[in-house]
Design a protein around this nucleic acid. Structure first.
Length: 577
RNA sequence: UGUCUGAUGGUGUAACUGGCAACACGUCUGAUUCUGGAUCAGAAGAGUCCAGGUUCGAGCCCUGGUCGGACAACCA
């Protein structure tokens, strides 16, 4: 067990997921536990979302961590819905969460589990804690409880109901369950210490009365356990060994352990370990605020391709592999992390570069007439589908007299290092011919309407027998063969690196990027993509990666830009200014 | 304010019981290329928040600061 190399190991899982994990501090803790022989040397983790919203990229990090760790130590991972608050939760979210976890490529142990499955056991344990004198029913109002909890500098005041007899507490608790009291009339509290410096330990609530239907238990219950009381006990019931959560729960750990000590009957204990949550530049990660974006229609829904939700990212064209690699790359630690979104973009590019077939598309068309090309002739040329993948094969593309090229691939007065088309200049039409621009045709307003060019028949396939060099190669489509498609260009949703960075009286809404979505209703793509299915990814040569949107239909293709290609020209262009 | 917690190149993570600070991305060169993409080769860039201490030797240990973050709901 010496060198760092030995600490890396290859992990294989159910599917074809294979990653190399670098050790992180959680690995070290787990290995300590294993070495100490704790919990029968098992590793069993869980991913415990509350079904009150869609999962986002931050959850993806947590999913990869929890499932990844289990795979690494030959353990298991449970998917458990933390559904203890019926007023906020919904099956819509349950379904989306399951889909997202599966899509990411992970398989949870057995069936999905629910905190609500354990309500009866949780109730019984609460009775036990009351019987041991460590919990009581409090009649104070929410407002009184909050006031009497004290402040960070002042200890709290004990509730006048704190010393009720066990019998009275039991009686009241059973009656709470029966529904004899209205919402808020009573709560069950743990009897710990109203003077504890950690305010969570000042007699925390265990149960509150909520007369609301639960998405799974219906109207069976009108009292619901609080997170702190439910979470650790659920871990205990499921035999979880390592309960991994984010940093904000650190302060809950003493309470997590306190509750466990009340009910444990053996040495077995789940261990809570906290890591820092993911923050991304130009990205909002708060579920509450994402919900606002959806509800107030700033985006088209939870799966809007600009959303950092897993469903949004999926629709945008990201692959599960790219997200897993991203999670691996950013690592796990306890210091706050703010990752540059470009890191995420790098991960999709890297993945899509290997798997996406190349295709030509023209987003902002400029008409090109090849004056010396016969009117009715059509030339079929070979084009390689993916130079990174020999198995991807090749296809035929059509060349004819009238073409479209990208408007920005032509400049009337080009700067020095511009090696695309300009008056008198020659470029290569990818996979086709050398083409020279002879004449620029303008409309009455002086806008460039079309280009008149000539081609060199000897350069068929892209090389000239005379060996002359043409530096620029541009993409194109044949006007009569191309099919129309809608293309949606996405950009970051916020203009500020930190969307929360706002002036007095403003909110993150003010930082929304007005240009985060640009729709090109009439772009041209080569006919080979006509039958593409939603979520199929392509590289539009020289432009970026695009995937077919779920709004797409036969004859009415819609593409989402996943991300652009790395663009060193724009850097040169900027430097030249 | 209290508690908890963290601080290592531009960013993110490493550095086993102290032993020349490593890796990835980014940046910059150069090669190659029918995608200004990809690929390949190479370089620059931190002396580890600060001040003391222990030690032959400190990013790791000790003391005292500084700065950042989290939490302080009948949410999770």
């Amino acid at each position: 067990m010496g060198s760092p190399e030995e600490k890396k190991e290859s992990i294989a899982s159910e599917g074809d997921i294979k990653t190399t994990k670098a050790a992180n501090f959680i690995n070290n803790l787990i290995e300590e536990d294993l070495a100490a022989g704790k919990n029968g040397k098992r590793v069993h983790t869980r991913f415990p979302p509350e079904p009150n919203g869609y999962l986002h990229i931050g959850h993806a990090k947590s999913i990869c961590l929890n499932f990844g760790l289990a795979q690494q130590y030959n353990g298991l991972t449970n998917l458990r819905f933390d559904d203890t608050n019926p007023t906020k939760e919904d099956v819509e979210y349950v379904d989306s969460i399951k889909e997202d976890v599966q899509w990411l490529g992970f398989k949870w142990n057995d069936q999905e589990l629910y905190a609500s499955d354990y309500f009866e056991q949780l109730f019984e344990w609460a009775v036990k804690i009351i019987q041991s004198g460590n919990a009581y029913v409090d009649d104070q109002t929410a407002e009184e409880i909050s006031r009497n909890r004290g402040t960070v500098t002042k200890p709290g005041i004990e509730s006048p109901y704190r010393n009720r007899s066990v019998e009275e507490n039991l009686d009241l608790f059973y009656r709470m369950r029966k529904g004899e009291f209205p919402d808020g009339a009573k709560v069950l509290r743990a009897k710990i210490d109203m003077a504890d410096n950690n305010m969570l330990m000042r007699d925390p609530l265990m149960y509150r009365i909520i007369h609301a239907d639960h998405h799974r238990t219906g109207d069976k219950w009108c009292i619901y356990p609080m997170y702190d009381y439910a979470h650790g006990q659920c871990d205990y019931l499921e035999g979880i060994t390592h309960s991994i959560c984010t940093l904000e729960f650190e302060i809950h750990r003493p309470l997590y352990n306190w509750f466990l000590d009340q009910i444990a009957t053996s040495d077995y204990r789940p261990r809570q370990i906290e890591f820092s949550r993911l923050n991304l530049t130009y990205t909002m990660m708060s579920k509450r605020k994402l919900l606002k974006l959806v509800e107030d229609k700033y985006v088209s829904g939870w799966d809007d391709p600009r959303m950092p939700t897993i469903s949004g990212i999926r629709r945008r064209g990201y692959t599960p592999e790219s997200i897993r690699n991203f999670a691996e790359m950013i690592g796990v630690a306890k210091r706050d992390q703010l990752i540059d979104v470009s890191q995420l973009e790098y991960c999709v590019r890297e993945d899509l570069n290997k798997r996406a077939n190349r295709v030509m598309a023209v987003l902002n068309p400029l008409k090109v007439v090849i004056t010396n090309y016969p009117d009715d002739q059509v030339d079929e040329l070979d084009a390689i589908n993916n130079p990174e993948d020999p198995n991807a094969g090749s296809r035929k593309i059509q060349f004819s007299k009238v073409l479209y090229i990208e408007r920005e691939d032509f400049m009337e007065n080009p700067p020095k290092k511009f090696f695309r088309l300009f008056p008198g200049g020659e470029v290569r039409m990818r996979y086709a011919y050398f083409v020279r621009c002879n004449e620029v045709i303008k409309d009455e307003e002086g806008n460039i309407a079309e280009l008149h060019c000539t081609y060199d028949p000897a350069s068929r396939g892209g090389n000239s027998p005379d060996g002359r060099k043409v530096k620029g190669t541009i993409h194109w489509v044949s006007a009569q063969h191309a099919i129309e498609a809608e293309v949606r260009l996405f950009d970051r949703l916020f203009v500020k690196e930190n969307p929360e960075d706002v002036a007095e009286g403003q909110s993150f809404i003010d930082n929304l990027n007005p240009d985060s979505l640009i729709v090109l209703p009439k772009a041209y793509v080569e006919p080979s993509v006509a039958d593409a299915k939603p979520l199929d990814s392509f590289q539009f040569e020289r432009l970026g990666y695009f995937c077919v949107d779920t709004d797409s239909a036969k004859g009415k293709l819609v593409f989402n830009r996943t991300t652009t290609l790395k663009d060193s020209w724009s850097k040169i262009e900027k430097a030249g200014q």
